[in-house]
């Protein structure tokens, strides 16, 4: 199904007025594509029927939010990023008595477990709290359980090695019936919570904030809001990491940050 521009604005208004979800700051081309994809998946014959379902069925809204937001993630995605974390950030964190890390837009949690493995191998996990947040409660349930399809483990195991992993990746999980469950030692230091970057405020102070491939879906105005939120939530000398195509450069606060390592999207707050 093709959704026209003005129809898209109707859906954005419906979600906000009826359910309090504000997608008005989302980049329209990908938002439109997500709605079209969902209408296709659920086989709506017309826009009118799609919209009616959204307006009348509060249960369906859960699915809408789940499918409109992008939840594609993997363990140790962009292994060089994790290499940089290991080499440049963990040695600094090691000097702190207590470490708080915020993973914003964590989806089904693969990044949180990757981070936990890194911290575990550096012997820092015991003094760390990982705050894993997402707009979408359903994916956080998956994250909390730490159960993933076993078919993905080959890729993740290669990523783990490319990310400088020194152990045997298979020791971090147990496999059964086509699924794996990551060890509970890894999730013991995680706190899962819904948090909407569009509307919610800061909730703690962190030494590291990681938010990868979330801002690409936001327009400039919303990106700026989120940069301010992160800035207010980050300790001086803390680190911000973004996705490989995202940047702080045009955020209006780039003078407060310096690039940690060229080629990596990691910044350190210097004032």
């Amino acid at each position: 199904m093709q959704i026209a521009d003005e129809e898209l604005e109707l859906l954005v208004a419906d979600l906000h007025d009826r359910y309090g979800y504000d997608f008005s700051g989302y980049a329209r081309a990908s938002l439109k594509r997500r709605f079209e994809r969902l209408a296709g998946l659920d086989k709506f014959p017309s826009f009118a029927e799609f919209r009616y379902k959204i307006l009348k069925d509060p249960v369906y809204i859960k699915r809408v939010v789940e499918e409109i937001t992008v939840n594609v993630t993997e363990m140790f995605r962009d292994p060089h990023f994790y290499l940089a974390l290991r080499a440049e950030i963990l040695p600094v964190l090691a000097t702190y008595p207590f470490i708080r890390i915020w993973l914003a837009g964590v989806a089904s949690g693969e990044e949180a477990y990757s981070m936990a493995i890194l911290l575990y191998e550096a012997n820092l996990l015991h003094k760390t709290l990982i705050y894993a947040t997402d707009i979408n409660p359903a994916v956080l349930d998956v994250a909390r359980k730490g159960i993933y399809p076993a078919a993905k483990m080959k890729q993740y195991s290669e990523n783990y090695l490319a990310a400088g992993g020194k152990g045997d990746f298979s020791e971090y999980y147990t496999a059964r019936y086509g699924y794996i469950k990551l060890n509970e030692e890894l999730s013991r230091r995680m706190i899962f919570s819904t948090h909407n970057l569009v509307s919610d405020a800061t909730f703690n102070e962190f030494q590291v904030i990681i938010c990868r491939n979330v801002l690409i879906y936001f327009d400039k105005t919303l990106q700026d809001r989120v940069f301010h939120l992160f800035n207010d939530s980050l300790d001086i000398f803390g680190f911000i990491a973004l996705g490989s195509k995202e940047t702080l450069k045009f955020s209006g606060m780039s003078d407060k940050y310096k690039v940690l390592k060229s080629g990596e999207k990691i910044w350190r707050k210097i004032s």
Binding site: A27, R28, A29, S30, R33, V70, I216, Y217, K245
Partner: peptide, 15 residues
């Protein structure tokens, strides 16, 4: 994925 916005800017999509 590479998408084109109405204001003729690119937007990216990792879906």
């Amino acid at each position: 994925h590479v998408l084109v916005e109405k204001d003729r800017t690119f937007s990216l999509d990792a879906s």
